[in-house]
Nucleic acid binder design. Sequence first.
DNA 1: CTCAATTCCGGACTGGACTCCGTTTCGAGC
DNA 2: GCTCGAAACGGAGTCCAGTCCGGAATTGAG
Lengths: 226, 226
Amino acid sequence: MQPTPPPSRPVAASAAQPVSRRERNRQDKIRRILGAATELFAERGYSAVATQEIADAADIGTGTLFRYAGSKAGLLMLVMNEQLRLGVERGITLSRNGTAPTEAILALVAPLVESGCHHPENTAAYQRETLFGSGPEREAAAAHVARIECAIEEILRRYVATRGMRPGRDLGMAAHVIYSTMYMDIVRVCMGRAPADSLTNRLRRSVDYLLDTLVRPPTDRGTPPG
Amino acid sequence: MQPTPPPSRPVAASAAQPVSRRERNRQDKIRRILGAATELFAERGYSAVATQEIADAADIGTGTLFRYAGSKAGLLMLVMNEQLRLGVERGITLSRNGTAPTEAILALVAPLVESGCHHPENTAAYQRETLFGSGPEREAAAAHVARIECAIEEILRRYVATRGMRPGRDLGMAAHVIYSTMYMDIVRVCMGRAPADSLTNRLRRSVDYLLDTLVRPPTDRGTPPG
DNA sequence: CTCAATTCCGGACTGGACTCCGTTTCGAGC
DNA sequence: GCTCGAAACGGAGTCCAGTCCGGAATTGAG
């Protein structure tokens, strides 16, 4: 995406003191871009916002905007990755606090659900880019997904253990199936093909169903996987 | 999508004789558009083809092109819906001919798989639009998906019956989960995030796994699906 | 401070999807 | 055939994402 070596640095947290003028300018621009994009996308929706407007609001040239963001879609992912990051962490923490497995899994996608109900268009575009996009911003989003799937797998493992089930099932695949199904449910709502107010119930139903089936130990018969 | 009442007609097959001059022109244009788009997309890939080129190849103006197709994405869906239609029918027929359930389900998505291996970019764009697009062409694609899911459900029902299992499971949901999982597998390959040559094996593994788990009758315990 | 080297910036520009509206073609009544 | 209203056409024009390159800012050396 980035045209040529962008002004990338080890994107580490603000720790080092010896910040050059350049670096300060850079950080400041990033902050302005993120702020402008966050506000405009939230206010008017992804497709109704022109990159020019974001550049104007951030008080930079369009060339500069694309130097930092790579593409309009990348900009959206930047914004939403940031917003979802905390939510995902919180969800993971919550999910470890002994809740019922279904609720624990729902907690993991709670930020996406909330975002999906509040800003359907932006969330749909985000999910679309997660699956079909490219570039570093998509990688970051994919990392979120991977974290969530891992957390689901962990929940499944505990679920199986507490019930004394045979743990041999491919819980990684189960987690993947569960996430995929929830992804579809969320997208359906964001695209307006299912009512938003029923999203959590629908997710709960899907997760219940899958928990109840995917995770039970295999009987002796049948086609053993793998 | 269509700007104003497009020249739509009951898109029925060529049956009626009393075709006016207008109607003949219309059919002819549609044929030229579809031909040009099919060839160009296949030859150079969705993103590398400009709508202007399609219009030129079909020997019509760009305005006319969009009168018939609504959007570039709609054009792709028109083309691929047409190509997949026969394949899906064949898959459904095959799947009824007593094959093993896994193979029957794979037969249903065989056209998508083939398309995905041969024209990854076009197939990815098609799948993307199936999920995130809008307009009549997407409806048609969604109808294909619904047919496939129904066929999967039918396969599951037979599978359950022949094994004397309790048929009370929500097989519709199972079919949906299976299709969603295969969708993800196909997209992953089309996006180059998994090797194309392993696609069928990967699908088989997913389907085997899901067949083996989703479809077994519930035990007495647990949360019975509503 | 001055100067050169390097990096960064930004707005004019490009390419492409899509639209608008004047022109053309068609069909029906006469 | 001729005329008129309606539908279809098409290409000039619009809008917008994304690029390019000339020039500005920053840094380091002397």
